[in-house]
Amino acid sequence: MMHIFCPYCGELREEEEFHAKGQAHIERPIEPEACSDAEWGDYLFFRNNPRGIHHELWIHAVGCRKYFNITRHTVTYEILETYRMGEQPGITAETLAAEQLAQSAAASAASSTTQQTGDARP
């Protein structure tokens, strides 16, 4: 059972109170008539389907009935953040990758300073 923090109610609630509504941040083309078939089809039917970080729209269906966004890992189901409509995610696959890179760089820097000897390259 996931526990989801509704950014409007300001509380953790059980998964059952919510409905998942698919990928977040999809914008309807401003001029649908100007779209090619490919663009319109992409807008209607093509969604991100990653193994990993996913930004998705949820509704607090039996709570405040408001829509909001979740950044969630699709394998572990860990919820990394929830944020209101109109806001942008603070955590993305890119920021996480950068963080990891920084961490491993720091770790190898630390190990190379303690290991003075040998020709170990970072």
Partner: peptide, 14 residues
């Protein structure tokens, strides 16, 4: 199905 995208090979209790 569970309503959300998931690769966890397990289903939800609800």
């Amino acid at each position: 199905i569970d309503g959300y995208v998931g690769y966890g090979q397990r289903g939800s209790y609800p």
